[in-house]
């Protein structure tokens, strides 16, 4: 039996960037969980949109996980349950939680884009900008500095 040589991992990203990508995966894991949790409180006319946002966060998470796997790294696993700062009991609190999740992710993506190479910055920044629009889609008003956690 022959054994294949252990794969050599070529780390093309700095540790700082990898740490932020890990943070983004954790954020997207939390977002997927949160949207699964709040989806049943969203009224029927907006359910399709909320479900599309759920799918979008799942896709983003998978894309980021793939980047880590390509580097030979193990992405962070999702938790079984997350502590939510807002107890969802109706449509209003469901939208509040959705906006809070989006705002936290904006902060993470802005931290990530700021340390990335120029070639990757625009794409990561766009994730933050799209998140800012989603906050308004969830019936919230504009924020002076999206991504800030107060």
């Amino acid at each position: 039996m022959t054994t294949s040589p252990s794969p050599t991992v070529e780390i093309g990203l700095s540790e700082e960037v990898i740490s932020k990508i890990n943070m983004a995966v954790e954020g997207e894991n939390a977002a997927v969980w949160a949207f699964g949790y709040l989806l049943s409180f969203i009224p029927d006319e907006n359910k399709d949109y909320a479900f599309s946002v759920f799918n979008l966060h799942r896709d983003n998470r998978d894309r980021l996980r793939l980047i880590l796997r390509d580097l030979g790294l193990t992405p962070p696993r999702p938790k079984e349950v997350y502590e939510v700062p807002i107890v969802v009991k109706d449509m209003v609190t469901a939208y509040e939680l959705a906006s809070l999740v989006e705002n936290r992710l904006i902060g993470i993506y802005i931290q990530l884009y700021a340390i990335e190479n120029k070639s990757e910055r625009s794409e990561t920044l766009q994730y933050a900008l799209d998140g800012a629009i989603r906050i308004l889609e969830f019936k919230q008003t504009p924020i002076a500095l999206p991504g800030s956690i107060s």
């Binding site: 931290q111 884009y113 700021a114 625009s122 933050a128 800012a132 504009p142 002076a144 991504g147």
Partner: peptide
């Protein structure tokens, strides 16, 4: 502008401003 600098703090400021302007 975010492609013309490598200053992390400036880039973070630009990112937050851009997100806010998208909402506007």
């Amino acid at each position: 502008s975010c492609l013309t600098t490598n200053d992390v703090l400036i880039l973070q400021n630009i990112g937050q401003i851009a997100a806010s302007i998208s909402q506007h």
